[in-house]
């Protein structure tokens, strides 16, 4: 869409002094043990404040969600025999329950809504193909918050500006691995060149699917043809995305922006037309 090109917000059209291969995360949820090392490593490296102590009573998940100060979030889907965690009781009884863990993160979308709608140019596409908030430019308008189709980015209470995963931009520029991937003890979080990660994920999916229990496994946001043009961060999931709190068919809202402005143009014309009619018709 021509509007995308105008800002260089897209991976394909942006230009850099020192171009790099697109970097990303492949999060293989089958390997996640729910240790939250990624959450802690992220907080520690990025010096993010705690969100306070809350007990959600939702399995081991007391983090709850990604927000301006929490950039990795481990989801726990706990489904036990008694069906406490919800789910189809018959299936669960037969299986004696199951655990799904998934470490969620910003998807670093190919078509990123947060970046598109940002009015200040604070959100940028880096040379690594990642999406980063320039904290010293952001004025805290909050537009990116409802724009993200994954509910990732948020306005921080502490300093008023938006915050989210940077894929450890500072570490990348030094050739280092992002903190979460470095800390992950099971290689559930894998970092690298996106092309390579995708190839690795394809092989892994085939292997996982060979197991009859996991025939529903799928790669989420791997590829270029979904509603966000693919994620720089993508996932191997064992169940439907919504089970993990992910949208099953996310679409970048700006895809329809041209259509929206056309409607707005008609509404503006209607406004002028009604005013003109009233001006002609009304007696003095």
């Amino acid at each position: 869409m021509e509007l995308f090109d105008a800002t260089g917000a897209d991976r394909e059209t942006a230009t850099y002094d020192e171009p790099q291969a697109r970097k990303g995360f492949f999060t293989d949820t089958t390997l996640c043990i729910g240790c939250k090392a990624c959450e802690v490593a992220c907080k520690e490296w990025n010096q993010l404040p705690s969100d306070g102590m809350t007990f959600t009573a939702q399995s081991y998940d007391n983090t709850g969600e990604l927000n301006g100060t929490t950039w990795r979030h481990v989801a726990f889907v706990e489904e036990l025999r008694n069906g406490k965690g919800g789910g189809d009781e018959q299936v669960l009884r037969a299986q004696a329950g199951r655990w799904l863990m998934e470490s969620d993160v910003c998807k670093h979308c190919t078509h990123a809504a947060c970046l598109d709608v940002c009015p200040t140019g604070s959100l940028i596409r880096t040379e690594f193909g990642t999406v980063v908030v320039q904290e010293d430019v952001c004025n805290g308008c909050g537009y990116c918050v409802p724009a993200c189709p994954f509910g990732v980015i948020d306005k921080r209470q502490t300093d008023g500006h938006a915050g989210k995963c940077t894929l450890c931009y500072d570490r990348l520029t030094d050739g280092e691995t992002p903190a979460c991937a470095k800390a992950c003890p099971t290689e559930s979080i894998q970092f690298g060149d996106l092309d390579e990660l995708r190839a690795r994920a394809d092989a892994r999916l085939e292997k996982v699917r060979a197991n009859a229990h996991f025939r529903d496994a799928s790669l989420y946001l791997r590829g270029d043809d979904d509603g966000i043009g693919g994620g720089g961060a993508f996932f191997l999931l064992l169940d439907k995305p919504e089970v993990y709190g992910l949208p099953p068919d996310p679409v970048v809202t700006t895809r329809d922006l041209g259509a929206m402005w056309r409607v707005a143009g008609k509404a503006a014309l209607a406004l002028v037309g009604v005013t003109a009619l009233a001006a002609l018709g009304a007696r003095k």
């Binding site: 998940d61 709850g64 994954f150 509910g151 948020d154 919504e242 089970v243 709190g245 949208p247």
Partner: peptide, 8 residues
Amino acid sequence: YYGRPVVK
């Protein structure tokens, strides 16, 4: 996921 919001 526990009825939690997907978008903010």
